[in-house]
């Protein structure tokens, strides 16, 4: 019996349109801003399944349907999806073709495809650090946010 092989897709959500409600203090990086807190991983996985069914029909939804959104943090607008290795491209396409979240136009960018969740996580932390550096903040709190979220996932 061969082990089930998976791919972990790390993605981030970009907001190409100018934010209207958010003040200038919330973020200094253009195009990336915190997501709506009501967007959870279960909501996203439902959306992805719908997208798969829409794009690839019953076949696609069935064959790549064992996806699960392992992690999504609205604060940094990044997430990790787990899919079977053979069908990760279908899920990637479904992510690419997703163009709004809760009525807000978005662009979803896949940052990394990895075989283990650990590497995806490390990449997420690395990118978050880089962004904080770009804004000019301290480096301490980012890791705390990401790690805290992880611990909550495991509970």
């Amino acid at each position: 019996m061969v082990r089930y092989k998976a791919r972990y897709i790390l993605f981030d959500v970009l907001y190409p349109n100018a934010p209207k409600t958010l003040g200038a203090a919330s973020t200094h990086i253009e195009f990336s801003s915190p997501s709506d807190p009501s967007i959870t991983s279960s909501y996203l996985s439902g959306l992805l399944r719908d997208g798969l069914a829409h794009q690839f029909g019953d076949y696609g939804a069935g064959v790549a349907g064992n996806l699960s959104v392992k992690y999504f943090s609205p604060a940094t607008s990044t997430g990790i999806v787990r899919v079977s290795r053979d069908h990760y491209r279908l899920v990637w396409t479904a992510l690419s073709f997703m163009n709004e979240l809760k009525g807000v136009p978005v662009v979803i960018r896949v940052v990394r495809v990895s075989g283990t969740i650990k590497k995806a996580e490390q990449e997420a932390i690395r990118r978050a650090r880089k962004e904080v550096k770009r804004v000019g903040g301290s480096l301490v709190d980012v890791e705390d946010i990401v790690v805290e979220d992880d611990e909550m996932e495991e509970d």
Partner: peptide, 14 residues
């Protein structure tokens, strides 16, 4: 519009 653009690696996937 900016919404119609995708990142280079996403385009490769397409």
């Amino acid at each position: 519009k900016a919404v119609g653009v995708r990142a280079p690696f996403d385009v490769m996937n397409l």
